[in-house]
Structure formats: structure tokens, C-alpha cells
Design a protein around this nucleic acid. Structure first.
Lengths: 154, 154
DNA sequence: ACATATTCCGATTGTAATAGTAGGAATTAA
DNA sequence: TTAATTCCTACTATTACAATCGGAATATGT
């Protein structure tokens, strides 16, 4: 039961945009890619989803880039994850009750719902601002920064 | 972020064993298969894991079968799921910190840990006995029971 | 005007995890 | 000795995910 890389990359991307965009300036995906070591191509895909969810705004053109659509305090972690991978439900029967003939008699259903609630509660208790706060050792020291090759950070 | 079918089947299997084994009697996988519509072959695989985790005991031979290794009250949902799919961690870096060069500087790590804690808390708050309790509409009415074919219950 | 850096869009391919099947050995009761 | 069971290992199919690719549209700086 893993959180997909897609979701984690989306979080890292948002953190990076927040950190780089100090005074509402635009941040290019090329820059985000350099600092996160996630390929620009992949970031582009993620950006579309985040944009459609109205979490960021994108400007095309030469000095284009992205910026947050709202203050980081008002963007919840859960919103970012949902934008990246859709609603978080650990079982299908929540989205598609008709897939299971025993939904109404399923002894486990209540447990699944509670786990779901637990996950979503935590995700919506924390904002992007909290994640982006750099008050202590949130910066990767140079000696850990790879200089080339694909992303060794998972 | 779905709970695998393997884990859900393991839960259903355990519930079925609990319900069928009233006075500590053995329950054959053939019977479990009939009632759950999960293939006997697949149940066999799951049973191995549950047995290794000391949740059930298996007796070979003609009138063999499985029974709970402990009272259902003392078996937590989390134990069953862990026996089926291993420890529940939504990110790899908990199991394998060396996979990510930025573990110590990861802004998201705390969130991941909290979500993990939330999930595991719920899973260990509930016992197999609770799931197996049949006090109300936990039985699939006959009209919903498939008579042949592969498992339509997911 | 033009070159360039960017977002934007759809398609494709590669890869790993999961689901499910299969054959047959070992065990034990009827 | 037959039959029903657990037990063990391997294989195959399917699916979801990760990642790449080509190129169009857009805007900017020079």
C-alpha cells in the first residue's frame, strides 16, 4: 500500500515552487527539475494536473513559469495528492460500489472507511506552507547533490 | 493507494474461518472457497502466510483444515494485513532509508510518518472478532450469491 | 522579425507489482 | 488404498505505474 511516486513528486514540486517563488515570481519547471532531480518531462505532466486542480497557475512563453494559485497556507497536502493521483480511497468499493456484490454485507467495509478517514484527516491537517518551511535543515547539503544522471531520490 | 486484493481476501478468509469454526473445529479451504468465491488455489497461498504469522494453524490430511491460533478477540486486523502483504508503510524510505539521499532533509517525511501512524492505529484498534460478529446483516442473502464462475466480489 | 525558453498536449514504451493458475508432493482420516 | 486435505514451488497473465518522446502553442527578449 504505497503512496505512488507521482504523488510524492507532486509534493516535492509544490514545495520547490513555494520556496523559489518568494514574491509571487514565476518558477520554471527547468529550475524545479534542477533542484529536485526529477525530469522536466515528468514535471510537465504533473503540472497539468496541479493546474487543473487550481493549485498553481502557468504562464507560457519565454519567461513563463508557474506560481501558486493561492497562499501556501491555504493549500492542503491532501489537495496536492488528490490532484496528482485522484481521490485517496484504499478500496474500490468506495468509488464503485457496483463492483462488489456484497457491499452492503461486507464485514470489512467499516474498517476500510475508518482507515480512509484517518488518512484523509492527516492529509488535510497540514498545509503546503508547513512542508515548505525551511527553518531547519530542510536544504540538501551540496555533498549530497548529484550532478548528473537520473534521479536517485525516490 | 489501494489496499491490495490479497490483503482484502486475507481478511475475508479469516472472517470466514472465524465464523465457521464455532467450537474450535477445523475449516477446510474448500469450504472457505465456496462461501467467499475466492479460488481454493489462491486461498492456499494466503493460508501459508497467515500460518507463518501464527494466526492460524493448519492440519493436513483427510479431515484436515484450519483453525484460529488464538481467540478472534486477540487477533488484530493489522496483523492479518501484515501477514498478507507485509508491513504497511506508504513510503519506501521507512523500510529502506538508503534508497533516498535526502531522507534527513525531506520536508515530507513527517507527513508520511503521520499517515502511517494513522493507518496502523486504526488497524490495530479493531480485532477479527469485531469483523466476524454477525449481529446484523453480515450475511450475503442468497439472491446475491453467485452459483458458478469466477469471483465477482472484489 | 526571429530565435528561444517556456507551457501545453497526446501518444508510446518500459518496468515492476499484483493476481491468478498449475502441477504435484506430503499428510492423514475414512 | 482411496480420497480429501494442506503444503510447496514455479509459471503466466494482467494491470498500474513510471518515464520518455515528438511536437504544437505561446510569449519574450534581443
Amino acid at each position: 500500500m504505497r503512496l505512488s511516486r507521482r504523488a510524492r513528486y507532486a509534493l516535492r514540486m509544490m514545495v520547490e515552487i513555494t520556496r523559489q517563488s518568494n514574491d509571487g515570481s514565476k518558477v520554471s519547471l527547468a529550475n524545479v527539475s534542477k533542484r529536485t532531480r526529477i525530469s522536466r518531462r515528468y514535471l510537465e505532466q504533473l503540472a497539468i494536473g496541479l493546474k487543473n486542480a487550481s493549485l498553481i497557475m502557468g504562464m507560457s512563453g519565454r519567461s513563463g513559469g508557474y506560481l501558486l494559485a493561492r497562499p501556501a497556507e491555504k493549500i492542503k497536502v491532501g489537495e496536492i495528492i488528490e490532484a496528482a493521483i485522484g481521490p485517496v480511497n484504499i478500496v474500490e468499493c468506495v468509488d464503485h460500489p457496483d463492483l462488489c456484490i456484497q457491499v452492503d454485507f461486507c464485514p470489512c467495509r467499516r474498517i476500510y472507511q475508518r482507515i480512509n478517514q484517518g488518512i484523509n484527516k492527516v492529509m488535510n491537517e497540514h498545509s503546503l506552507a508547513e512542508l515548505s518551511d525551511m527553518k531547519k535543515d530542510c536544504e540538501i547539503p551540496d555533498k549530497y547533490k548529484p550532478t548528473s544522471g537520473s534521479c536517485p531520490v525516490r
